[in-house]
Design a protein around this nucleic acid. Structure first.
Lengths: 320, 320
DNA sequence: ACTCTTGCCCAAAACGTTTTGGGTGATTAC
DNA sequence: GTAATCACCCAAAACGTTTTGGGCAAGAGT
């Protein structure tokens, strides 16, 4: 048995001739090692778990405007397979109905954890390795994360708006206390203070969709010193915002420049199409899986930027 | 040990007081049964696997136009969790690099298997329960499937086109030999013969995207007795087709009525928007998971229609 | 001639559950 | 008063691997 195990796993020392014989016989007998038994003994099942946190607050896996997450999940799954792991899609594992197999995963990827995320607490007490996509702001010393280079992306967008004639740029963020919202806002504030400008920050819940975007538009319309550009993190907000402004005769891009922080169906298909940052979830997902696998192999974790994003300039932020 | 096992799983006969004491103690000690050990003994891991077959032929998990599958995966995942299972996303498990944990799943869902799908062969020789979404046409007697009610949907679409003035309807199908393509075509032929019409069937590879749609448009433009309506199964084809026709002055819906067989980003956002059948992947996914779980529980499998689709009428098929 | 490696193989223990097959004392049936 | 039935609990086996700790030749070093 030992020899077979070694021959098939490539671990111990087995004569090449013996290994060949074992492998051949195994094929002939259609023998495949039982992954569960092997998992029990070696304490390694070969499964990664993916928890898309923002979807736990939405009414579950709606497709519209959340294609970011679906692209992420698909790419993560393929990447996991390439590393020899299966990928299990989970929702919040702190919920009592969670199947016990959830915690049997070898490691977790948590996207956009909330501040002091209880999911992370659970995994840490269980001793399960994890990696977050986007920092947990309540754990500044926690080091296993990967995220877009938000500072760079924010500055790039703001620079673009300025170059296209914006005199005063507002930012519209979501209300979730996650790394993306907070760092984007911080970078924006920094940029404003460099220019001696008063920051203008509008917030709407992520879940509010285009209606939330309309509410932002409403707010802007009511302002005496209305800004002439908005960097709106959520694609759905951006679309709603643009629609609301248009209804009151404030045109994009003529009267208002607009950029969305995350590309989505809505930003691509509005009229005019909305400039947006493609956060390249595929790139991020592959990086996250690779980092987690490395961590499972014993290497120490370390936070890093996984993508600089791809800024797609469309009609909403360029005047001809 | 037996008593604890029984108390926690609710299986054997345990005095209520004992059970309470066990549960309480378990909580105090933060004891959780090890899913892998339990899986080894009981031969039931608590994981379902999902193989989205059409994505194995695409260049892997592209989001555009395949939101059907992503909606399916999300809904399947949630539904699996509700049934106490985790859901593992896999690509073709017959590939040699497949992690061995793939075959440790308790059951498989295979969407749109190809004819005589080798994945099904593999699972059957391994004795792993499976359910297909869309029949495998090479296995007429195989009974564990669920699929949209293609016949009903096709007739509904054709009826709608006829009602809106179509005199001659063509169908544009994909080239994959899967149940959707074949049954749609069969229903279409039947409908034609009922009317004594000559069927006109155009085929393009699914992977060709909007370019394939343009090719269909090209073909139509070259025809002397051009039909005045097209039922185009793939949303991306429909969008490309409409764009190509428009370039040659053939307007939709004025000169050509158009309906897509599967709703997607492209059909929603074309100008005019394209009428389409929403195949309700969420409904199908939930039905598939429920049926598979039932099958795992020992009940016999039986094929059935999972959804009648939701026909969304838009501008491309209605003349004012 | 003797130890010491080295290369290879093997028996047995271990992983943490579930299941099997009793076992015990209390209640009921005759 | 004995047997039968229950309700409950328990010891030990079993699931299919990996890992541990030798063991046995053959060659190398002295």
């Amino acid at each position: 048995m030992t020899t077979v195990s070694h021959a098939l796993s490539g671990k111990g020392i087995v004569a090449e001739s013996t290994r060949a014989r074992v492998i051949d016989t195994a094929r002939r007998l259609r023998y495949r090692p039982n992954a569960v038994a092997s998992g029990l003994r070696s304490n390694r099942l070969g499964i990664l778990a993916l928890v898309l946190r923002p979807l736990d607050t939405l009414e579950s896996f709606q497709p519209e405007g959340v294609d970011y997450f679906l692209r992420f999940a698909g790419a993560a799954s393929l990447s996991a397979l390439e590393h020899g792991y299966g990928l299990m899609l989970l929702s919040d594992p702190t919920l009592p109905e969670t199947p016990s197999v959830a915690l049997a995963a070898d490691g977790f990827i948590i996207t956009e954890p909330v501040e002091n995320d209880p999911v992370i607490d659970l995994l840490q007490t269980e001793g399960i390795p994890l990696l977050t996509v986007g920092k947990d702001l309540g754990r500044p010393s926690y080091d296993a994360w990967i995220e877009p280079n938000t500072a760079k992306i924010t500055r790039q967008v703001l620079h673009h708006l300025e170059e296209n004639g914006a005199r005063r740029v507002a930012i519209a963020v979501g209300t979730d206390r996650n790394s993306w919202n907070i760092s984007s806002e911080a970078s924006y504030r920094e940029w404003c203070s460099e220019r001696g400008q008063e920051p203008l920050i509008l917030a709407q819940r992520e879940t509010s969709g285009t209606a939330g975007g309309r509410a932002i538009g409403e707010e802007l319309l009511g302002m005496a010193d209305r800004p002439d550009a908005v960097y709106c993190l959520t694609g759905r907000h951006a679309a709603g915002l643009m629609a609301r402004l248009a209804e009151s005769g404030v045109g994009t891009p003529d009267d208002m420049l607009l950029v969305a922080g995350s590309d989505s169906e809505q930003t691509r298909n509005s009229v005019p199409p909305i400039s947006a940052v493609d956060l390249e979830p595929e790139v991020l997902a592959r990086a996250a899986v690779a980092a987690l696998v490395k961590q499972l192999g014993g290497e120490p974790a370390s936070g890093q930027a996984g993508t600089d994003g791809r800024f797609i300039i469309r009609g909403s932020s360029t005047r001809l």
